[in-house]
Amino acid sequence: MKTMKMIGTLVVVSLMFMVACDKDTDPADRDLFVGTYEGTITFNGGGETIIDDDGKVTVTKVGSSYSFIFGSGIPDITGVRFEEGDDNVYVSIGDGLTGIRITASSLDIGVTNDEGTWTADCSR
């Protein structure tokens, strides 16, 4: 009985390892970008300018779209979709939301739309 339990555990662990190492898994599907990035963030819009050299941007994902939750009183950017560029760099697509480049370790934002202008030079 003890041997069967041990074999069963080994099979489960082996299957988990094989699934985790699947080369066909798109990095964006594994939520690599979700988390907090830190660095310089700015916003200019509505008659105000906010600059934070020690700012934070938290990236969340619901379905296939991302949200960028800023600290420091900067308005959030929501509903962002991405397409894969070179070397696992993803770039934002869509009206008024272009100008975001993200990897597992860096976030660069240069978005301008009717609401204002956001910039970020962050890493984690």
Rank of each mutant, 00 (worst) to 15 (best):
C21W: 13
I41N: 02
G45H: 02
V62C: 13
G73A: 04
D52Q: 03
T60N: 06
D108F: 13
G110S: 10
L97S: 12
E48D: 05
L15Y: 05
T3M: 12
D86A: 15
I7G: 05
T25F: 06
A20I: 07
G35R: 13
L15D: 09
D86I: 14
V89A: 09
I93R: 15
K56Y: 10
G116H: 01
T42V: 12
G73T: 08
T98R: 00
S64A: 11
I50R: 01
V11A: 14
M1D: 15
P75Y: 02
F33A: 03
S105H: 13
L10I: 10
G8C: 12
L10Y: 08
V13S: 04
G71V: 06
T49G: 08
N113I: 08
T3Y: 10
G79K: 05
T112G: 01
F33R: 00
D31G: 13
T112W: 01
G47A: 04
L10Q: 08
G47P: 09
S92Y: 06
F33T: 01
R124P: 01
T49Y: 10
S105N: 14
M4I: 11
I100V: 11
L107K: 09
I109Q: 03
C122R: 03
D86G: 08
T103S: 04
K23V: 11
D22Q: 15
I77Q: 00
I41C: 04
G45E: 01
R101A: 07
K56L: 08
G110W: 07
S67F: 03
P27K: 10
R101P: 04
K2S: 15
G55N: 02
G110I: 07
N88I: 09
T3K: 12
D26V: 08
T119A: 02
T98W: 03
T60F: 02
D87Q: 15
T112L: 04
F82A: 01
M1A: 11
P75S: 10
Y90G: 02
I100P: 00
T3D: 15
M1L: 13
D53V: 12
V57L: 05
E115A: 15
V89P: 01
T42A: 04
V34I: 11
L32I: 10
G73K: 05
F68T: 00
T36S: 11
D114R: 06
V59I: 07
T78H: 08
G85L: 10
K5A: 14
D24T: 15
D86Q: 12
S65N: 15
I102W: 02
R30S: 14
T40S: 15
G94P: 06
G45M: 00
G73W: 03
T119Y: 00
D87T: 12
E83I: 02
G110K: 14
